[in-house]
Amino acid sequence: MPTYNATGITLGAHKYGDAARVVTFFTRERGKVEATARGIGKPGSKLAAAVEPFTLSRLQFAEGRDLDRLTQAEVLQGYVPLRQDMRRYAYGAALLELTALTTEPGQAVPDLFEALVAALAALAGATDLELIFWAYTLRLLQTQGNAPEIEHCVHCGARITGQVWHLAVEGGFVCRDCSPQSNGRAQVSGAAVGALRGLVTLPFDRLDRLSLSQGVRREVGRVIRAHLSYHVSGELRSLAFLDKVSRAKGRSDADLS
């Protein structure tokens, strides 16, 4: 049976029989790979650590008729802090979920793979986790050609300065010269456009340098959410989970106080 090697991040796994899993990896060389991994539930399994979500590993697969089979794995990075903090865990899961939803088997996207590795590493130590999620979302949309145009007006091509209008369906921002009225678009400040530029250009481990006011943060979040929901169907479960955890914690804190 022919084999191939790849470096990949585990996006998720589901049970297949008693001790096997069907695992989804996002690999540098082949994009998304679905493979079976046997003997996972048993103590001493040499593959068990590599099928845990978030794990970056060197992998060997044997090609199969339907699904390939994971035959060897060497863990390169386990991103342990993501297991020890519920918010890091949820944001990390959101990155994996987004990647799984938008990538295809057999289609390598090396830039996105590198972005995911950098984003997970940054999530393990950063304080502002939302910025990392946003930056990854924008870079993912970029690799698909769906990122908002943040340099020029999508109508006249003039460089954007100051306040502009935004509508996801138009693919970016419209300057005030082209549209003095909102016409259903959301108003976005120059500071928010600047923040969006920072999110796509700054390395993930330097995103903490972006210091956003609450108002700018709301605007940036609105723009990214609009593009995300326009290009990726369905709500991200991981973000809904984050809301659930916040609600439950808020309630238990209130009960205890």
Partner: peptide, 11 residues
């Protein structure tokens, strides 16, 4: 277990 990918929250 809590699972963001499966949408299983504390409640």
């Amino acid at each position: 277990l809590l699972s963001p990918l499966d949408g299983i929250g504390p409640d």
